[in-house]
Simulated assay, not measured.
Amino acid sequence: MLKNQGTWVGSFTQLAPSGAVLQDTPSEVALLPLNQGNTMRQTIRKLPPGQPISETVLEYSSLGRGVLFCQTGAFSQGSIQRSPVGEFGAELGLIHGAERLRIAQIFPKQPTLGSLTLIREHLDGVEPAARPDLSTAQLIGTWLGEAETVYPDLQPPQTVATRLEIQQVGSDITQSLSFGNSANIQSRGQQAGSALRFDQGRQPVTVLLLPNGASASFPTEIQSGQGLFLEAGWLITPTLRQRLIRTYNAQGTWTSLTLVTEQKQ
């Protein structure tokens, strides 16, 4: 958590499940350690144009059961158990230097995504890098990297090599993904506007291509009794990408958080 301390300036962008921008609200989020670092105070200020400033102050002396951090400072907080009759979702936060990118995905008592928030931030006084909206063309190619997985039951973290190959043939997008020595995971999808839809398999997945090189991946419609994942991606440079993946098992229980850092070959 300490790697996230400071005052982060940016905006909260509300998006439709299609990826369309609904509203963009300037923001300031201050994370300050107190009591020799044993307590963290978070002050969230939203500054909507022409409206009163809203301010929320939170203090943490311990992390909730639904929160995990990776060594880089990347983190996720959210549901530890999915229930078909309750709200389900998570926030996934990536950090690179003096910039952060966070994505919140919420399923409000329904199997399809209800709301999506993209939060782009940089430390106060730092000029953020300019990045275009993510496109399929930027993702085509072979990506090699490393995945760090941490677990809510506090078992030791695991690190494995990763390989991701993305190809486009006509309107079809194909992916081949491997973690360590595991078998390749193959998927085929099609692009529809700013969305990639992978409809094969037991849990079809939608990937939204978003502003600032961001992407959000989630089940197109949650199928009970099947494992699922929520993912935030960030193309930091044309050849450097981070992805943060929050995984749930077939019973809907949160099992792990994986940070993938990959380089385009």
Rank of each mutant, 00 (worst) to 15 (best):
K3V: 14
N4G: 14
N4M: 13
Q5P: 00
G6M: 02
T7L: 09
V9D: 02
G10D: 06
S11N: 08
S11A: 15
S11K: 06
L15A: 08
S18L: 11
A20P: 13
L22G: 08
L22C: 09
Q23L: 15
Q23V: 12
D24M: 13
T25C: 04
S27Y: 07
V29T: 13
A30K: 10
L31A: 09
P33L: 04
P33R: 07
N35W: 01
N38W: 01
N38S: 08
T39K: 03
R45P: 01
L47T: 02
P49K: 08
S54N: 13
S54I: 07
S61K: 11
S61N: 13
S61C: 04
L63W: 11
V67K: 09
A74L: 01
F75K: 10
Q77I: 12
G78M: 01
R82H: 06
S83I: 07
G89S: 04
E91S: 14
L92T: 02
G93C: 09
L94I: 09
L101T: 00
R102C: 10
A104L: 10
Q105R: 07
I106H: 13
Q110G: 12
L113G: 12
G114W: 01
S115A: 13
T117Y: 09
D124H: 07
D124G: 00
G125I: 04
R131P: 06
P132T: 04
D133K: 08
S135P: 01
T136L: 14
T136S: 10
A137D: 15
A137F: 05
A137E: 15
T142Q: 12
A147T: 10
T149P: 00
V150P: 03
V150W: 02
P152E: 08
L154V: 15
P157Q: 11
T159E: 11
V160C: 05
T162M: 06
T162P: 01
L164G: 02
E165I: 09
Q167N: 13
G170C: 09
G170N: 11
Q175N: 09
S178T: 14
F179M: 10
G180I: 07
N181D: 15
S182C: 03
A183G: 10
S187Y: 00
R188C: 14
R188D: 06
Q191A: 12
Q191C: 09
L196C: 04
L196D: 06
R197E: 14
D199M: 15
Q200V: 05
G201K: 07
Q203F: 08
P204W: 11
V205L: 10
T206S: 10
V207S: 11
V207M: 13
L210G: 12
N212L: 05
N212H: 11
A214I: 10
A216R: 10
F218W: 07
E221F: 08
Q223K: 12
G225A: 03
G227D: 05
E231C: 11
A232D: 08
G233E: 03
I236G: 00
T237W: 00
T237C: 00
T237R: 02
L240E: 05
R241I: 02
R243S: 15
R243K: 14
Y248T: 00
A250R: 12
T253G: 14
S256G: 07
L257H: 02
L257G: 01
V260I: 15
T261L: 06
Q263V: 06
K264F: 05
Q265E: 13
Q265M: 12
